[in-house]
Design a protein around this nucleic acid. Structure first.
Lengths: 177, 177, 177, 177
DNA sequence: TATGAATGAGTCTTCATTCAT
DNA sequence: GATGAATGAAGACTCATTCAT
């Protein structure tokens, strides 16, 4: 918390923006909102980031890195040798339990649909999952699972309840057979 | 094209808004843009719709209705008795061939994530597909397929190439087995 | 002074901008300043003019039109049959007596140097003068006089006193000989 | 290029600012732009110059000094004894051949119109020319020529082609008669 | 009924200048 | 002596919405 701490300041701005993307969406993200949430003056948000696009990209990258960390946890769980579809279904259910998780991820997909520079970020989770599953399944099956779980994600986004876990496990079992 | 044609005017506005959601996204939608595209005075857009949210909802509803029409075509194809997974894979590939289709659909998902009143619209395609598939598959399998195809949709959104058709058919075959 | 008077409002904005260009220069012109001077809300300045460039161009055009009116007075004086150089010298001295006149004219020259769309405006006075002088002098001499008087203009801009009238008349006499 | 070379640094900043005045105009001059062009840190531009006005004045002074050097070349040419009007016309044509020259000079005139402290700079070229011509012409004629050439300068600024050389020579001949 | 005018809130962004280091 | 960080004021511009006509 030293007064001069560019790295820390930048990080706080990025984290604030990341939170806000979840709360108000990409469309609702403004410099003012980010500055207020991060507790920095308005000028700081434009000092550290060339433009709002630049800032939102950094925020999405930050979220992607958090997702990558989560992926490590998934890898560990999957490598533990337990029943693969059941484990996956449990992990996904845990992920969806926090409604706030699905929203920013889907915002990223839509944003990447319009801003090609964001596409690598948008592919990170899916590609990472395919990599992790590579140890336990054929590549094609791994990809099918990753794609299916993206579907589960958006499905949950627009329903009060995500898909139920037995159905999830059943579908995953088929895709991995 | 009668001089006084409130219904027609309203429709033109809605159609214009629907196009624009695909082009500039929900976030980029403005009264001015819609008025210009529809060829109506600015005031008409606020005269016929209470607010921009109201207008965008009407536009999304319109897009959903178009999708419903498309679903009838799918139903016809699927009922023709041909190989189910192959037919489905072909239909989906056709759908994704036009990159402009995936974008508004995903915009709707994200918008519905934040605006509950939009959720029925967002569920229409998936639920419709489950209904159509009901004639050929177990409910659980039908749902799994619908969810998977949503995944295929967002997958295509962030890649240069959608998932290839053989892989698509293979996955669908498993889910429908 | 009716409440709804788009034409009048537009004119007031343009006039305010014209005055301000003389006072604070093109570089100092802002929407806020114009709105305050014209007595209209800030939004009005952007409602009537696409951009500040658009507004400043309209203001310069307005100034040019005023100059054109002045040119008619010059034409009348020159056509009266009095001694040409002496009359011209007198007219120019009268013009320069108001220090506020030289400034906007020169601003226009510089602005036109960078914004080609302004060049026709910047040429109006000189070309008009050549036309007026056409009745009394050879084209080449008329042009030389117009060019010289532009020099007199910028000369006055950076001195406490414009060039004295006898010297002016002497030079004009030579150029018109 | 010694490590510590305050004088050199200052000079590089001034030269960069001088270039930029020609390119983006006085209005477009910023510390950041100058720092980038000069290859010095942003802080250096405020460290060596109290304010942007201070910096721009130094840059204009620098440009004026370059002009003074050019004036020496003119003096040499004029003193060579060749035909005075023709030589002058040739020199002026050469000067105008580089379109980039007229712009900063006129910027200086306009700036001096508003900032009295710049007037001595703005008078330098004209007064210098009168001095140089003093050896070959009456003071009044010399001044008339200087004034006329200022007119030629701004004339060129707003036309695709400067005044043609024969016309130039003819006018100069008259003014020097 | 219909619409163009109107505006005030709010957006991103730039920047001169200050100052801690 | 030198500089990168910092910031607050201000700029251009957009727009949903209101409303007089």
């Amino acid at each position: 918390m030293t007064r001069r701490d560019p790295e820390g300041r930048r990080r706080r701005i990025v984290e604030a923006a990341g939170q806000l993307i979840g709360e108000v969406g990409m469309a609702g993200l403004t410099h003012r909102l980010v500055a207020a949430r991060a507790g920095v003056p308005l000028g700081a948000t434009t000092y550290y980031f060339t433009s709002l696009d630049d800032l939102s990209e950094a925020a999405l990258r930050h979220l992607t890195e958090e997702t990558a960390a989560e992926l490590d946890a998934w890898a560990a769980a999957l490598d533990s040798g337990a029943d693969l579809p059941a484990t996956l279904a449990g992990l996904m259910a845990g992920y969806l339990a926090d409604r706030g998780r699905a929203l920013p991820e889907t915002e990223l997909y839509v944003a990447a649909g319009r801003r090609p520079e964001l596409r690598p970020l948008a592919r990170a989770w899916g590609d990472g999952l395919v990599r992790v599953l590579g140890a336990h399944a054929e590549p094609a099956a791994a990809r099918a699972v990753a794609v299916f779980l993206d579907g589960v994600l958006v499905h949950a986004l627009v329903r009060d309840e995500p898909i139920d876990q037995p159905a999830l496990r059943a579908a995953l079992t088929k895709l991995l057979s």
